[in-house]
Nucleic acid binder design. Structure first.
Lengths: 115, 115
DNA sequence: CTCACTACCTTGCTTTACAAGTTATTAAAT
DNA sequence: ATTTAATAACTTGTAAAGCAAGGTAGTGAG
């Protein structure tokens, strides 16, 4: 997947993941990779998490881990939920517009092409 | 629509529009607005067209117009078509990933939630 | 003791997008 | 004749986004 396609969208995705369940940064990276967003790396995620926290969309708290250094768990705020709703609307608009532009023709029977 | 969601995607969209038919910059802006990509403006489009031309993905030629100054019509190249195919693959991946993350639960009957 | 995995963070760079301006042509309105 | 509006292309300066490449540190296995 190309990286420069992600601008702005990554923010919404990690906010959505945090909305579903409280997560820490490293875990978010692992999960995004599971969703085939393979290009996301720590240099993208951690600064974004700090930005979201500064904006008041998430809150973080440090928790000791038995398997490594301390984890910083993030939780979404009410403001964050509002922002996420907005993002979702914008994403749907963008998604619809781009898919409309790239819409395929029905080549197997052009005469009966659907409208 | 929010503007910062567009990074990278705008490029693919205008390349696709040029693939469908030879277009000039001003017309591309009008068409993108018709697709509800209302935030696109000249400051985004013209530099992008120059970048695409420099990369060899499109070629431009100036044509006189009866309704105003000269138009610069752009046509996609074979290289541009290859690049567009790549873009389309990447877009589908991104689209699938994001929609999976934002997938709604089937609240009306959680017990029979689809897999 | 070293290696690998986990976990967080920062610096510096490139790319992207866009607001706000400029210039110029045509046609309609004043 | 002059202003206005629409058309059409372009540039400058700025902000934002993403990421590679580094660093630091804890845990556990070999």
């Amino acid at each position: 997947m190309k990286s420069q396609m992600l601008k702005g969208i990554l923010e919404g995705c990690i906010l959505k993941l945090i909305e579903k369940e409280t997560l820490y940064g490293y875990d978010i990276i692992v999960r995004l990779k599971e969703f085939n967003l393979s290009m996301v790396s720590e240099g993208s995620i951690y600064p974004l998490l700090h930005k979201l926290q500064k904006a008041g969309y998430i809150t973080g708290r440090r928790v000791k881990s038995a398997e490594g250094p301390m984890r910083k768990y993030y939780k979404i705020t009410d403001e964050g939920k509002n922002y996420l709703d907005e993002f979702q609307l914008h994403w749907r608009e963008l998604d619809g517009a781009v898919n409309q532009i790239f819409e395929e023709e029905y080549d197997d029977n052009p005469a009966q092409k659907r409208i």
